[in-house]
Simulated scan of single mutants.
Amino acid sequence: MKITVITVGKLKEKYLKMAIDEYSKRLSRYCKLTIIEVMDEKTPEQMSISQEMIVKNKEGERILKHIKDNAYVITLAIKGNMLSSEQLAQHLNHLGVERNSNIVFIIGGSIGLSDEVMARSNYNVSFSKMTFPHQLMRVILLEQVYRSFRINMGEPYHK
């Protein structure tokens, strides 16, 4: 299975980079993982709705350039489906059985994803009703993908 994570913005914090490296190493046993960072737009504090749309659209164009036609796209969105770890594992396993082995996860920037990216999405998932920094979501996502593979392989995992 090929897992691609497309994310807006560069990761700067060393401790987050170390966590990403650790989960990337762990995931290498189960899948081919690629992480693509697209440039984020500057977002002033007081933005109008039209300015927000412009920012989302620019970031969205950068994201969409990296998605192949045969990819199954899962967007991380606050209004997405809330799943347990077991349900995410089951969903990923089901995709593998259906031969959808090219899975792309998308983590948007600080103001979310464009309508075009959401329209390209096959499935929306929410990790919480809370808002998390998008840099931290990379770590949380990779941990949950790793946990999903462990569950699907019948291997022990921390409950």
Rank of each mutant, 00 (worst) to 15 (best):
K2D: 15
K2S: 12
I3G: 03
V5M: 09
I6R: 00
I6T: 01
K10N: 08
K12H: 14
K12F: 04
K14T: 05
K14D: 13
Y15M: 08
Y15P: 11
L16W: 06
K17I: 01
I20V: 15
I20F: 04
D21G: 09
D21M: 01
E22G: 00
K25R: 14
R26F: 00
R26L: 10
L27I: 05
S28N: 10
Y30S: 09
Y30A: 10
C31K: 00
K32Y: 01
T34L: 05
E37H: 15
E37D: 02
E41H: 08
E41I: 07
T43Y: 03
E45F: 13
Q46T: 09
Q46D: 12
S48Q: 05
I49K: 13
I49L: 13
S50R: 15
S50G: 01
Q51Y: 10
Q51I: 04
I54K: 03
I54V: 12
K58S: 14
H66T: 04
I67S: 05
N70V: 02
N70R: 04
A71M: 08
Y72N: 03
V73W: 02
I74H: 01
I74F: 02
A77H: 05
A77N: 10
A77W: 07
L83Y: 07
S84R: 02
Q87P: 04
Q87D: 12
Q87K: 15
L88V: 07
A89V: 06
L92G: 01
N93R: 12
N93W: 15
N93A: 08
G96R: 07
V97W: 10
V97I: 15
V97L: 14
E98Y: 12
N100G: 01
N102E: 15
N102K: 10
I103Y: 09
V104R: 06
F105K: 02
G109E: 06
G109R: 02
S110R: 14
I111K: 05
G112P: 08
G112T: 10
L113K: 06
S114R: 04
S114P: 11
E116Q: 15
V117W: 09
V117Y: 09
M118V: 12
M118H: 12
A119G: 09
R120I: 12
R120K: 15
S121D: 12
Y123Q: 13
Y123A: 03
N124A: 14
N124M: 15
V125S: 09
S126K: 14
S126W: 00
K129H: 14
T131A: 11
P133W: 03
L136I: 10
R138M: 09
V139Y: 01
I140D: 03
L141P: 06
E143H: 07
E143R: 07
Q144H: 13
Q144V: 09
V145P: 08
V145C: 13
Y146N: 08
Y146P: 07
R147P: 03
S148I: 10
F149A: 08
N152V: 08
N152K: 12
P156K: 14
Y157R: 03
H158T: 12
H158F: 09
K159I: 13
